[in-house]
Amino acid sequence: MRSIMLAATALLAITATAAAGEEKPLAYEKPQIPEDHESLIASDDPQLAANKRLVYDMYRIVLQAGLADRAHEYIAVDYVQHNPNAAQGLDGLIDYVRSTRPERPIKDKLELPLIHLMAEGDYVTTAFVRPEKDAEGRTYYATWFDLYRIEDGKIAEHWDPMLKSDPKIDPNDRQI
């Protein structure tokens, strides 16, 4: 019984400390972002490395630089889009890019805070840190995931957590 009372007392103390604002949730701490993107792209499997490079360069050139006219270099004509706010096919992606971001110079590296780039089989997943604001205006850090399916050397399909109720965004505005 004594151990249960001690555990309950400790739990109450932890809860009271958190409620008093003394303990900041991890989401409010700026995360560590890898600087070496080439190591994220690298793989012992040449096909996985090629798939990661395809996604990385598409993101860098089409989505970051806003060069919609180059999308055909990376995206299949019959591209399947699971983001409910973008139309299907290569033309749908081109229209989405043109409607959400200006053209910018191409950078050698992604400027969005890339945490990880994973490849398995024909799939590549990106994970980015996204700074957001809470109700009090404080910055916290969420994570955005995109999943791409590669077919015949092009991106054939895409998933992300975007909801129909979400406004179209330029993720390049979400840098740390």
Score class of each variant (00 low, 15 high):
residue 6 L to H: 11
residue 7 A to F: 12
residue 10 A to D: 08
residue 17 T to I: 08
residue 17 T to M: 10
residue 19 A to W: 13
residue 19 A to M: 12
residue 19 A to D: 10
residue 20 A to K: 11
residue 21 G to H: 12
residue 22 E to S: 04
residue 24 K to W: 08
residue 24 K to H: 04
residue 25 P to N: 08
residue 28 Y to Q: 09
residue 30 K to H: 12
residue 32 Q to K: 13
residue 33 I to P: 05
residue 37 H to W: 05
residue 46 P to E: 10
residue 49 A to P: 03
residue 59 Y to K: 06
residue 60 R to A: 06
residue 63 L to R: 01
residue 63 L to D: 00
residue 65 A to W: 07
residue 66 G to I: 01
residue 67 L to Y: 04
residue 68 A to S: 15
residue 68 A to H: 03
residue 69 D to W: 04
residue 76 A to E: 12
residue 77 V to G: 03
residue 85 N to P: 06
residue 88 Q to H: 08
residue 89 G to R: 10
residue 92 G to L: 00
residue 93 L to Y: 01
residue 94 I to T: 11
residue 99 S to Q: 13
residue 100 T to G: 05
residue 102 P to G: 14
residue 103 E to R: 03
residue 104 R to G: 08
residue 107 K to V: 05
residue 111 E to K: 04
residue 116 H to Q: 12
residue 125 T to N: 03
residue 126 T to W: 02
residue 128 F to V: 07
residue 129 V to K: 04
residue 129 V to S: 10
residue 133 K to A: 03
residue 134 D to C: 12
residue 144 W to H: 09
residue 145 F to L: 07
residue 145 F to K: 02
residue 145 F to P: 00
residue 148 Y to L: 05
residue 148 Y to R: 07
residue 154 K to G: 00
residue 154 K to P: 04
residue 156 A to S: 14
residue 160 D to A: 00
residue 164 K to C: 06
residue 165 S to F: 07
residue 168 K to D: 15
residue 173 D to H: 09
residue 174 R to Y: 15
residue 176 I to Q: 13
